[in-house]
């Protein structure tokens, strides 16, 4: 490693320890300590009752005939072969077995509060959302909203990081569940096929950002907007509030990530205790806001300077909904 890299890492580490000590000092002030305790008590009791209620009355499970109706709707797609998959490897039938897990995450673990999911139109559309939480549970919850809360259901075809689709088991499962390797050509073909494509334009940068930068969206890629112009697709902006707190990334060990060929290698507070299990999400409460569809016109091959303001419009729409969500919520868990 060159000396400059080494010094840079040391500097990151120094900044990080500084932030942690500042936070600790701030929270240990007596008046802060009291409100903190109060907050913890309140969130624990309210959160727990909200967590337990659907489990106790069984309302977290969709009735079997309703599940059947929704799956049949997904199976109605014209691109399925006699072997039950589309050319991308999506097998709607495989959703049946994973649905209980999705329902559990959506209705119990994250208790997702979904606003205006019916703004997602029929026909081709691009769902554009902020990305956060270290592991892509935000994608799962958006999927839950579109599959469980929207009627008729839609399967979001997410553009997934190339790294993830190459992994054993998870890579194959992702493809069977309708997720697609994130390539412009794949996206274009799905939109031409009138599918609903989910894109996180912040990509890996967004999902693995450190805790101190929560709810500050990183730069958006421009590819999605060019594809929307090219295929004349409406864009539905989506804001996800809550995911930032599910896994707290204190520090991203870039050297280790590089070594393991991973996009990021975050260190979380519980890692010394739980090891890699600390990457699993805390039962935070999700709030998902679907915005009005946005339509753009223009040349898909225009200069960055022309595309950038359009991307900024989408980003601003998400930013506004993020702020609304942050104002509405009373805590991480309620």
């Amino acid at each position: 490693m060159p000396l400059s890299d080494y010094l840079q890492h040391l500097d990151h580490l120094r900044q990080f320890t500084q932030t942690v000590s500042q936070e600790l000092v701030a929270w240990s002030a007596p008046e802060k300590r009291a409100t903190l305790l109060e907050r913890v008590a309140k969130e624990a009791s309210e959160g727990a009752s909200e967590f337990l209620a659907p489990l106790l009355d069984g309302s977290w499970r969709t009735p079997p005939d309703e599940v059947e109706r929704r799956i049949r709707h997904l199976l109605d797609a014209k691109s399925l072969s006699e072997f039950g998959t589309d050319p991308f490897g999506y097998a709607p039938d495989s959703i049946r077995s994973v649905l209980p897990l999705l329902e559990f995450l959506h209705r119990v673990w994250f208790r997702a509060e979904v606003h205006d999911v019916h703004r997602v139109p029929a026909g081709r559309c691009l769902v554009i959302a902020n990305h956060s939480g270290q592991l892509p549970f935000d994608g799962a919850v958006i999927g839950g909203a579109l599959l469980l809360d929207r009627d008729p259901p839609r399967m979001p075809r997410s553009m997934v990081e190339k790294f993830a689709t190459g992994l054993p088991l998870t890579g194959t499962w992702f493809l069977r569940w309708g997720q697609v390797t994130g390539l412009p050509d794949n996206c274009r073909r799905l939109l031409d096929n009138d599918e609903c494509v989910l894109v996180f334009p912040e990509g890996a940068r967004g999902i693995s950002k450190p805790f101190r930068e929560r709810y500050k969206m990183t730069a958006f890629g421009h590819g999605f907007l060019r594809l929307a112009l090219e295929t004349n697709t409406p864009i539905v902006p989506v804001a996800v509030v809550g995911a930032e707190e599910q896994t707290i990334n204190l520090y991203d060990v870039k050297v280790l990530a590089k070594l393991l060929h991973m996009p990021a290698c975050p260190v979380t507070p519980l890692m010394p205790l739980l090891g890699p299990l600390a990457m699993l999400p805390a039962p935070v409460k999700y709030r998902v806001y679907f915005g009005e569809p946005l339509r753009f016109e223009g040349d898909a091959n225009d200069d960055e300077a022309v595309i950038a303001p359009k991307v900024a419009t989408v980003r601003a729409a998400i930013q506004a909904m993020l702020e609304r969500g942050l104002a509405e919520r009373r805590g991480w868990y309620i």
């Binding site: 050319p87 991308f88 490897g89 190339k162 689709t165 190459g166 890579g171 697609v180 390797t181 390539l183 050509d185 794949n186 073909r189």
Partner: peptide, 14 residues
């Protein structure tokens, strides 16, 4: 042969 493209995890579907 179609094998000239080579199998890769980040191949497009078409």
């Amino acid at each position: 042969t179609g094998d000239v493209y080579g199998p890769q995890s980040d191949n497009p579907a078409f």
